[in-house]
Computed example of a mutant assay.
Amino acid sequence: MSDTHRPAITLSALGLRWHSENGTPAPRRLIAADPTLPTRAAYQLACESTALLWHGDYPGALRLLHAMRRHAERPRSRSRQSTVRTDAPVPGSPAEAFRRHRRERACLARALAMLVVPLGTDHRIPLDGAPDVREACRAAYGPILDNRIVSLRELLGVVGAHQWRARGVEVPALGARVHPHYGVFAPVRGEYVGLVARAPLPPAAREHPTAYDLGTGTGVLAAVLARRGLGPVLVTDVNPRALACAQDNARRLGLADRILPGGSALYPPGTERVALVVCNPPWLPHHTTSTLDQGVYDPGGRMLHGFLDGLARRLLPGGEGWLVLSDLAEHLGLRTRDDLLSAIAAAGLRVHGRLDTRPSHPRATHPDPADPLHAARAAETTSLWRLTPA
């Protein structure tokens, strides 16, 4: 019997259930995997949506996961398998290069997600040499009432996110740390936070300091506004984890009385007009492949257009809307500057001013020529657009 024709097993026979926080669908087939399974066969099975339930020790599972990644990313000429090439030039337009890059990364992520491990109701991994992941899993998963199998790759993400939550992310514009929860986009791009910290406040804010932070994430921009004297700052987010995270950070920063939950709709309910509405939507108008993508990709620009279309009627006289947006989508050919300006005008708005900054993260300051998006990253500018009713 070949390694790719191992007998299938069922979750029900094992008393297990599939669990995925990032939306990965249940596998089509499940087989037992152990150290005798070659990397090439493991990757082929994973590409066919066959889950590999690990029966060795935990370090062995990590070794196989890393070996599968290396196998997938090596040049095609060295393997007959379908691989993800990261060293080959991508012909065509920047948009074509971006879409191909996204397809390849999504394919790799789906395959690597097929290496799975058991997780008990006590949030323990019942494998020799497994670390204690109970605290991290409780924070991400909550109570587990039955035994599960989870993707090892996702589990590593859960553990890493918990470490970030405990350690926090330093935000120079705040002079403090914010603590991202699992599933909430972390503010590692500090330059856009700096824009909100230094933009001149609108005239209406002197007498009416109420503000909205739409799609708040960790609540970092709301915290900057509150530190600047605005409040209450009502925060909204479609992700309930983000609303909880924003409230947690508000408490940590001593701002719980100034940062208040505004609900899961884009704008808080009601018709209250405010002095300032801030929105930092996902920067790339492209579809998502997992729930964790929602901090980066805005399918069809729905959030961007929702913010623009609802802004004018929610601003007080002398109020402003601040749109924090990178032009990376423009350099990738996913949106043009004319598209953005036309959407602003169609919403009955005008550009009152704009502040720009260049990104400081390593992929922009030291772009990798092997990265098919390196030219776009090197040219990127992040802007705060100050918008008022026309």
Rank of each mutant, 00 (worst) to 15 (best):
V184T: 10
P200I: 14
D128L: 15
E96T: 08
I9G: 05
A26S: 06
P180E: 04
P209L: 05
W385P: 02
V324T: 04
N249P: 11
L37E: 03
D3R: 11
C47P: 09
A136W: 03
T121V: 14
A211Y: 03
P27L: 01
L315N: 08
P369H: 09
E73Y: 03
G306T: 07
E330D: 12
V169S: 01
L323H: 08
H123Q: 06
H179D: 10
C47H: 00
R69L: 14
G270L: 08
V274M: 01
T271R: 12
I31R: 00
V278Y: 00
D146F: 11
E207M: 00
Q163G: 09
W283F: 15
T271W: 02
R102Q: 05
T83R: 06
L315V: 01
A32H: 12
A378L: 02
H19Q: 08
T121C: 13
R85E: 11
H208Y: 09
P126Q: 11
T83Y: 02
H101Y: 10
T381C: 06
E96C: 10
L30S: 00
S2R: 06
Y297P: 12
A390T: 07
L292R: 13
A370C: 12
F307H: 00
T236D: 15
T4H: 07
S2D: 13
T336L: 08
